[in-house]
Nucleic acid binder design. Structure first.
Lengths: 236, 236
DNA sequence: CAACCAGTTTGCGTTAGCGCAAAACAGGGT
DNA sequence: ACCCTGTTTTGCGCTAACGCAAACTGGTTG
């Protein structure tokens, strides 16, 4: 089994407050794997045999309705865990995970979780922290969907992506993984048509520069203004 | 300090897998309090000095935007915990909690949490389970808001309330705490006007019976049909 | 018992955003 | 270099739901 360098992951929230020996012991139970761009990591409904830690790349977690409509639950950035079905006592994955870029992950068998938690209680505490934060973010998203209109939601979504996975450019920030209009629509609860129209509008105002699965925020500050503008204080 | 009967709470998920002695020790750190109907338990943004376990009554957790709009995050039923800001490492409550009915709660000081978790690791594991479940429910809600129309969302919301806090009647199920049209609107991301219109419609079809802060589902099965109907297979 | 008040109902005009359809576009593979 | 496929753009009509305004209801209070 390939050895994982502890120094690369020691600083992650998941391992906060752990001794190097503990970390070493935990990592010994993991294997690593590479997923090429656009490959499935696991499918919604499959039994949750493993949980994951993303080392490199980007992963999209999406949920599908019986009718086949999808929403993006979140984009996973390097250093984050995903596929934690066992944390909530679920036997099956509640969402589908896809590598949107060539990705490298650490993989633990779900069966190892109880033992690891027993031996390293900090693991449960740290995971609780993470899951709690995600719950908050979820609530914020619900709040936005309930109270803001589409343009503002898209602005927020892009700013969040920029913060989480933005690559600083000379002038602007680029979302550094492939993302389509459709994906943004599924993050914000709208349609790809509406997203396209809005981004076109922004592009003609010089706020963004975008193309095939590529988005650069040229004027982040002005986008923040859009995001925070309430329903009535529209354009002058 | 009033003594709490362990047998009343021993079966709760929060205390799963704990010895009676452990439970006793945990309960010794708690005090109990009573909140009359419509009284505030804590406010969004206040520092999170305590966390709570609801024994009797019902509590509404709501989040407010800077602009003053509200959404209902969830209704807390007896046996559930709330105000777990410390679980996610937040210093302040992310939402406001209000007793919607005369309620009795157990209260622990947030400061006791680290010690309790260290002494009883199962506490963290159980809480993780709970928070994880709530995260899933959140995602389901986002999915619904993205893909379903208002009538279906309201149907789902009422069915959920009925399941969580429904009182079985001879014919039908009554939501057994006061809930207004406005509240339902804030749960489903719509306006009280729209909720009122839809409930009026249902009432004239005999699906529900409702009045001032009171709702009885008379035909739960037919409401399930409404909830599951996809966008296109409308009325015959 | 009357006045009040919070919650509810309903009508009506408006509109943000959807849905369909079709065209333009951009890569990647052979 | 060319085709093929997946993505993006844009036009146009439509409608679900909003927003405002006004009337109504039933429980509570002085």
């Amino acid at each position: 089994m390939a050895k994982v360098d502890t120094s690369l992951v020691a600083h992650l929230p998941l391992f906060a407050g752990m001794t190097p020996e503990a970390l070493d012991e935990i990592l010994r139970e993991a294997r690593s794997a590479r997923y090429p761009r656009n490959s499935a990591i696991f499918e919604q409904g499959a039994d949750a045999q493993c949980f994951f830690l993303l080392l490199h790349g980007h992963v999209r977690a999406a949920k599908t309705t019986p009718a086949g409509e999808q929403i993006v639950v979140r984009y996973v950035a390097p250093g984050e865990t995903f596929g934690l079905a066992m944390a909530i006592g679920a036997a099956r994955y509640p969402a589908t995970a896809t590598a949107v870029d060539d990705s490298v992950v650490l993989i633990w068998p779900t069966s190892a979780w109880p033992r690891l938690v027993e031996r390293f209680p900090a693991l449960a505490a740290n995971t609780l922290q993470t899951v709690g934060t995600r719950l908050q973010e979820s609530h914020t998203r619900i709040l936005e969907m309930s109270t803001q209109q589409v343009e503002q939601r898209i602005a927020h979504a892009l700013l969040r992506l920029a913060k989480q996975s933005g690559k600083k450019l000379d002038h602007g920030i680029e979302i550094d993984f492939p993302i389509s209009r459709q994906d943004i629509a599924q993050m914000t609860g709208t349609t790809l048509h509406t997203v396209s129209r809005i981004l076109s509008g922004w592009e003609s105002q010089g706020l963004v520069e975008s193309g095939r699965q590529r988005i650069i925020l040229r004027e982040p500050h002005r986008i923040v203004v859009l995001a925070e503008r309430s329903a009535d204080n529209g354009a002058a």
